[in-house]
Design a binder for these strands. Structure first.
Length: 471
RNA sequence: GUGGCUAUAGUUCAAUGGUAGAACACUGGAUUGUGGUUCCAGACACGAGGGUUCAAUUCCCUCUAGCCACCCCA
């Protein structure tokens, strides 16, 4: 902006309103989009915790990380997720790009991973191929608690392994993920059988609901479900519908031998591994491609009772993650027949849970050494020192842009420094430096050359090692 | 897509038909070489539009946004 304008009228008259006052935040035309969120510094610490845990666990079980583009062809989801699913029907961020192609922001991870498996000829790799994935997904839904239009998932997939061990390991990893974060969860598990089993079951289920006018007693949603997606009749929450459901046939009774054996094996393995699960005959999942094992991770019931004042408000039990087997999908998408299974869990919901339960983030144990300076000469010297110490493995911090010692120590205090090293003109001339214990407030002047041994003495054994590394 | 609740400072919340206040956070100061406790000072807010009224942040309507629930999902 030209200088003269600035000085003539310092605001409001000439300057466009938007720039002049810094107030509009609520009605900001540039505000972030609905259902999207910024993850600020403190909150990101939770994400880091989860990301580390995910990397750690996936690595332990032999999964390799993969990343795929945020954008995919719309058709990918139409074919895999399912034409008639809500995700594809009404929740996709899809658009025509500049070359006229129909594009979508990925609403889930599995289709991309199936695509990648086929496209890169991964059937030529040693099977099974075990991959994990961490990234944002997009669904144009109405936001509410634990639901965003952009959310982050941790996904694991196993390709080329028909064994029930594969299903079990996924569930085990999911279970470990939560319990190692001190979140109590329940594993809901069911088997949808193979496609033929499911077909037969659905037919039988519809017959059941047609009997003796049960249909007319259903809630409106369920009436709609009856024709659209009968399996969904099973997990309605309306008391009346639940009552009717009591006597409904269960899909487990319709499993052919292969599918039944597979399911039983999974359950036996889970027993061996002491993973608590809840056999839930009413669990069905919303995606088209599942067969056999399906599971969902929900918060444990005892989780509800931490409400101190007043009646415990029953919070909606949103699922934290889910997955299952999808043996037919790879072939359907144009690959070789390849059994596969996978699961995903939503980081936002896990973060929410961790906050709800006040699970503390472990603090970094390594002590912070703060370097403070007074005067330009001292600053030049200590900026160099900072580099040396940082390379030497110390956790050093600074606020060299600040001139006053007061401001610097304030910063040291804010970040929880254990010691501050203070270098002023006087010390610079003497070849000394002040070491200040930030907890006790005591300080002493030491010879500049003795910094390392002095710090080693004060920080104890663990830090000896760091000093050694330095050499 | 349907329904309920809410909208005041950076945050969490007050009050009020007539000059909007606190706490925390922020900036500066209390011997210009010393943080955390204390004291002082300062900056920062009534989501937008319309209506009723002499007068609206307050009452009414609309919009927008947020939260929550249903649907569905992580």
């Amino acid at each position: 902006m030209p200088k003269k304008e600035m000085s003539k009228n310092n605001n409001k008259t000439n300057i466009p309103k938007e720039e002049a006052d810094h107030k509009p935040r609520r009605d900001n035309k540039h505000a972030r989009l609905k259902g999207m969120k910024d993850i600020l510094f403190d909150e990101y610490r939770y994400y880091n915790l989860l990301i580390n845990k995910a990397n750690d666990l996936a690595g332990s079980y032999g999964f390799n990380r993969i990343e795929t583009p945020v954008l995919e062809r719309f058709k990918l989801y139409e074919r895999s997720t399912g034409k008639d699913t809500d995700i594809v029907l009404k929740e996709m961020y899809d658009f025509i790009d500049k070359s006229g192609d129909k594009i979508a922001l990925r609403p889930e991870a599995t289709p991309s991973l199936v695509r990648a498996y086929i496209e890169h000829g991964m059937f030529n790799m040693p099977q099974p191929v075990k991959m994990y994935w961490l990234g944002p997904l997009f669904r144009h839904e109405k936001p509410q608690s634990g639901r965003y239009r952009q959310h982050t998932q941790f996904d694991l997939e196993i390709f080329g392994d028909p064994s029930p061990v594969a299903d079990t390991q996924l569930i085990l990893i999911a279970y470990n993920f939560f319990s190692e974060l001190q979140i109590n969860v329940q594993v809901q598990i069911n088997s949808l059988g193979d496609p033929e089993d499911r077909e037969e079951y659905i037919a039988r289920l519809m017959e059941f609901y047609k009997e003796r006018g049960k249909r007319s007693k259903l809630c409106n949603d369920c009436k709609r479900r009856f024709s659209k997606n009968p399996l969904r009749l099973l997990d309605c929450k309306e008391p009346d519908c639940i009552a009717i459901r009591e006597d409904a046939p269960q899909i487990v009774d319709f499993l052919a031998d292969n599918a039944r054996d597979h399911f039983i094996k999974v359950l036996e393995y889970l027993d061996d591994l002491e993973v608590p699960y809840n056999l839930n005959p009413f669990l069905v999942r919303g995606l088209d491609y599942y067969n056999r094992t399906v599971f969902e991770i929900t918060p444990a019931i005892d989780d509800l009772e931490n409400n101190e004042n007043g009646p415990a408000v029953q919070k909606r039990q949103i699922s934290l993650g889910g997955g299952g087997r999808y043996d037919g999908l790879v072939e359907k998408m144009g690959g070789r027949p390849t059994p596969a299974c996978g699961f995903g869990l939503g980081l936002e919901r896990v973060v929410q849970k961790i906050k709800e339960k006040n699970i503390p983030l472990h603090k970094d144990k390594e002590p912070i050494i703060f370097l403070a300076q007074l005067g330009d000469q001292a600053r030049r010297k200590i900026m160099v020192m900072f580099e040396e110490m940082r390379r030497g493995g110390y956790k050093v911090r600074q606020a060299f842009t600040k001139d006053s010692l007061k401001a610097q120590l304030e910063e040291a205090n804010r970040i929880g420094a254990k010691y501050s090293l203070i270098l002023g003109q006087k010390e610079l001339l003497d070849g000394t430096i002040i070491i200040r214990d930030m907890e006790s407030g005591t300080q002493e002047v030491i010879d500049m050359k003795k910094i390392n041994p002095e710090l080693a003495r004060r920080l104890g054994e663990k830090e000896e090692i760091i000093i050694n590394n330095k050499q």
